[in-house]
Design a protein around this nucleic acid. Structure first.
Length: 103
DNA sequence: GCGGTGACGGTCG
DNA sequence: CCGACCGCCACCG
């Protein structure tokens, strides 16, 4: 079992609702600050019923360049339910919703 | 062990 | 902030 993925999933689940975390944040907490790329790959590997709040994971720009636009739409809808709002540029304000990583 | 790959990040312009 | 280029790590065949 890939420990890195398992670690990433655990951290993602630790992200509180109403907050968003960046891939870098997850990578750092996972123990590999330079493996942010793999973090994103781990998210893509997550099935919709995995129980992992992958929608709270965004890149440093506060957006999710998902290959499937349909999934991005779903992600946006879920974030709205958590109180997270998108700005005019279809991006999330990391200054306001960015998770400090300490809960 | 090797080569290919990717929801990325940092730097440069 | 955005776009372009390179580099990074871990997973997969």
């Amino acid at each position: 079992m890939a420990e890195f993925y398992q670690k990433v999933y655990e951290i993602v689940k630790k992200v509180p609702a109403g907050k968003v975390a960046t891939y870098k944040q997850i990578a750092v907490l996972a123990g590999s600050p330079l493996a942010a790329r793999q973090v994103g790959y781990a998210m893509a590997a997550l099935p919709p019923g995995s129980g992992i709040p992958w929608q709270r994971i965004v890149n440093s720009r506060g957006e999710i360049p998902m290959k499937d636009p349909s999934g991005a739409e779903e992600q946006r809808q879920r974030l709205l339910l958590e109180g997270i709002t998108y700005n005019s540029q279809n991006r999330i304000d990391l200054e306001a919703f960015g998770w400090n990583g300490k809960g």
